[in-house]
Design a protein around this nucleic acid. Structure first.
Lengths: 215, 215
DNA sequence: GTCAACATTATTGTCGACAAAATGAAAAAG
DNA sequence: CTTTTTCATTTTGTCGACAATAATGTTGAC
């Protein structure tokens, strides 16, 4: 088995960005990462270039790499795009879900919500929340869509950091997910899509005011 | 003025992929590109890693970089995603188009179609075709959406290579674009969206059979 | 002639070094 | 004191080299 430093570094840096260990705006020094990995800077730079293209990292010539900072406008744009994509995912998934164990997976996931809500573990709850949406994207059986949504979720995760009041909306999210799934299972496409749209837009309204106005 | 080899190489390689000078499946040797640029391989590799993340180039460990080959399923997925995004773009653009010179630009563009149709210049026609869609994405005033669509168009361009019968459909495309714009201008959102959807799906039906079945 | 084992060559991944550019600190000018 | 200039330090972009891996070619057994 090989090392493939680039790929490891990619995961490592992305991980630290997504769990807020690297905060928006901070510099990511290739030299430092290289030291951490005990390697040279070349593979680290390759990883960073990948992350730039993924939209999580920003780069300015002769000035290095920083974690991307999103303006409020950008966040709104992301959510509007996300709404369209999630609705498409619901549409496609509803059509094709019986061809597999998709319903099962989703219902299993839903059944784990209460325990986690009980525990008040925000990070964990956000994880399964994201997983719910990811599963729907997955069962849409459209890899381009799935990829696009994963990319969006990454960016939105960075933003969600500001969003700590979410404890109150756990119950809400749970109920909405349940209802969406119910309509997916019963092939009620239009209603499922309508609910998903509301679900995303509601989330946007919660998040937007918390994002700092300017970069 | 700086050089920024990475960025130049990125544009150069992407350009050659998009104008079919690098065909799907062929190896892109970093060493060769480095020779062309008269530089070392490091900045070339950084550029290639960016292109990998953009989905135009594929990478396998210890085996180098190749131009991405799309399967027919992937192409179908791309078009379905594209339909959703283009429709969203039409929706947003219709709402906001009077706040600028958007209509003008689009009408100007449309007015250049006949001459190019006359000339039978396929490449040039595909260019303005793409430009029409890009302008709509631009005037949607949603940078996330615009970016996602640009990315999609890049991938679809690779596929379009197989599509050489398009001369016949010039007239068709022209009329459809005219009609779509007309409904955008007159704020007839739903009809504009409906027509755009048909426009994309028709294109998909044309392209799909031409894509080689398997990778 | 086919095929496996081995040897040769080419390619890929990573390294350490260094010049150019930016940053920050100190000195000079106002 | 501020502002500007100069200089030292750090960071960034690129290079050329090399070991590890894969691709290719050669040989000989069957």
């Amino acid at each position: 088995m090989k090392k493939k430093i680039t790929s490891n570094a990619f995961d490592y840096i992305k991980g630290r960005i997504l769990n807020f260990s690297f905060l928006p705006g901070v510099k990511i020094s290739d030299e430092e990462i290289a030291k951490i990995f005990g390697t040279s800077r070349s593979p680290i730079r390759e990883a960073l270039n990948r992350l730039v293209e993924q939209g999580l990292v920003e780069y300015r010539t002769n000035r290095g790499f920083t974690v991307k900072v999103f303006t409020r406008k950008e966040v709104a744009d992301l959510y509007i795009l996300r709404e369209a994509l999630e609705c498409l995912a619901v549409r496609l998934t509803t059509q094709s879900i019986d061809d597999g164990h998709g319903v099962e997976s989703l219902e299993n996931l839903l059944s784990t919500y209460p325990a986690i809500m009980e525990s008040q573990d925000i990070a964990r709850f956000n994880e399964i929340d994201e997983r719910f949406h990811d599963l729907i994207a997955l069962y849409s059986n459209n890899s381009a869509l799935h990829g696009a949504l994963q990319n969006l979720h990454g960016k939105i995760r960075i933003i969600r950091r500001y969003d700590h009041l979410r404890i109150g909306s756990f119950q809400n999210t749970y109920e909405e997910h349940q209802l969406i799934l119910k309509h997916i299972v019963s092939k009620n496409v239009e209603e499922a899509v309508r609910l998903m749209s509301l679900h995303i837009l509601k989330s946007m309204k919660l998040v937007l005011p918390i994002v700092p106005e300017q970069s």
